[in-house]
Computed example of a mutant assay.
Amino acid sequence: MPKIGMEPVRRKALVDAALKAIGDHGSLDVTMQEIARSAGVSAALAFHYFGSKDQLLLATMRSLLRQLKEEAIAAIRQAETPRGKVSALIAVSFGAEQFAASTVAAWLAFYVEAQRSEETRRLLTVYARRLHSNLVAALSPLCGRLEAQHVAEGAAALIDGLYIRRALDAARLDVGEAAALVEDYVTLKLNAVKPETGR
């Protein structure tokens, strides 16, 4: 008989193992057997909990998105000013765990998968809309909603671009340097706002 309360622990172990396996492979070309072995459980148990590899991979992606959402909410609540909220959102995007090489590789694999999987594409769209919405809400008091939309779009594109460069090893940036590049962009855009027009 399995111990009561072990299912959530084993599910998390499988999700963590899936994330690591995807990162190590640089793609979603991993097997349930590999993931289960890394998590210390049988493949049969992995199939019992998730039904299929695709469902486990989607659960892994949802776990990443949930973590990002929770960290963003906490960071926004702690920030005392609109500009502080913008910086908090940027910092969360480049959190040490999110910007780890294996996690970045997993994100890139999910973007590739989104070309064929409607559910993966939907989850990535949720992520993109949430990031954009949070940035617009934080930026609007600083430059007006119209300009905030524009600045948020640029900041989000920079964040995504830095993840791609990190995944391809094209930019050996640490989390601080990556965040600083986005901060510089936001500061330049906000400094260009004309007070008399509200832009």
Rank of each mutant, 00 (worst) to 15 (best):
E147D: 11
R130F: 10
L135M: 09
L58Q: 12
T120L: 03
L14T: 10
L162E: 07
S140Q: 10
A138K: 02
H25A: 15
G5L: 03
W107N: 09
S27I: 13
K189Q: 15
T31M: 02
D16E: 13
Y127D: 11
R37W: 09
L65A: 07
G176W: 11
A79I: 04
D16N: 12
R129K: 13
N134M: 11
V112K: 13
R77W: 12
A75G: 08
H132C: 02
E70Y: 04
S117Q: 02
Q33E: 13
K69Q: 14
E147M: 12
A152T: 09
G144Y: 07
K3W: 12
T31R: 02
H150W: 11
F99W: 04
R66L: 09
V86R: 00
G5V: 05
V41N: 01
G40E: 08
F47R: 14
L123C: 04
L89I: 12
R121Y: 10
F94N: 02
A72N: 04
I76V: 15
F110V: 01
G198Y: 06
R116I: 05
L139A: 04
G84T: 02
A152S: 06
L45V: 06
K20G: 06
W107V: 03
A44I: 03
A138V: 11
K12P: 04
A18T: 13
E113V: 00
A59F: 05
D29P: 01
G144W: 08
G198M: 06
L158S: 00
R166W: 06
A148I: 12
G154V: 05
E113P: 01
R165V: 00
Q78D: 14
E147V: 15
L168W: 07
R77L: 14
G176E: 15
Q33N: 08
F50K: 07
L123A: 06
I76S: 08
Q98L: 07
V86Y: 00
A79L: 09
Y163V: 08
S63N: 14
T31E: 02
A179G: 04
A75R: 04
G198P: 07
R199P: 05
Y185G: 03
A178K: 07
Q98T: 05
L58M: 13
I76H: 03
I159C: 00
E34G: 02
V9I: 15
I164D: 09
Q67H: 11
V182I: 06
E196L: 13
V92L: 03
P2T: 06
L123H: 09
T120P: 04
N191E: 14
R77F: 11
T31W: 05
E113Q: 12
D16A: 15
D29I: 05
T197W: 14
R129L: 12
D54G: 09
Q115F: 09
G84S: 04
